[in-house]
Design a protein around this nucleic acid. Structure first.
Lengths: 109, 109
DNA sequence: AAAATACATTAGTAGATACTCATTGATTAG
DNA sequence: CTAATCAATGAGTATCTACTAATGTATTTT
């Protein structure tokens, strides 16, 4: 089955452990290059670039080329579809409040 | 790369659109049987059972056999690893508050 | 200019996985 | 008892995907 929704892209992208680890490292560091991400990753540089491409297409990271380096940084908005999905289908949260998103907006408008 | 953490199981399980749709239907209905889930799903009963097995192993659904029917219901706690992960790596949320989980516990202890 | 570095991309491959079809076990209906 | 229904499971298959290895393209260094 083929779907192309935002939540689909985000979940499929984060489902892979290697790719998720890359995302976590990007989040943890302000900006980080491909070589740095490659070091200690256990996979080749090519694999890292492929994963970054997926993350970029899912809207989870953004790039900033500078010279021969490319600096990657996390794109927080990319997680919004996941947050929305959680608020819709996350019974756990819905049981506690009517709508998590609404609550958050009330707290921090 | 092989990992067996809770967040890994949850994300991998929800990554598949068909399986996620099943989960969403289980969440929406209080309790639902396999035949009901099969109807309008576009896949066979066997496929549904296989997906339910995955969802069960991920802790996202629970079953209640009754006669020859098996009623499935959502298991809200199963989404906790995802919520935890969001609070750790969801920059979007972290930028707004130090820790989402802490906040939620303060509101509803 | 030549060598080196950073990154992207391609082709090819091995393994994962989502599916169908068929079968089985169990329960209920006629 | 027999037939029908519900669900789980196994075998087989086609597709997807994460990876390596190799190559290409810039850019920087020497």
């Amino acid at each position: 089955m083929i779907e192309a929704t935002a939540i689909d892209a985000v979940l499929r992208t984060l489902a892979d452990p290697t790719r998720r680890a890359i995302f976590e490292r990007v989040v943890s560091s302000d900006e980080i290059t491909v070589v740095e991400l490659t070091r200690g990753s256990g996979v080749t540089q090519g694999a890292i670039s492929q994963h970054l491409k997926s993350l970029k297409q899912a809207g989870l990271v953004a790039e900033r080329p500078e010279g021969r380096n490319v600096y990657y940084r996390a794109q927080p908005e990319g997680l919004a579809p996941l947050a929305d999905w959680m608020s819709h289908y996350g019974v756990f949260w819905r049981e506690r409040f009517a709508n998590l998103k609404t609550l958050l907006e009330e707290i921090d408008p």
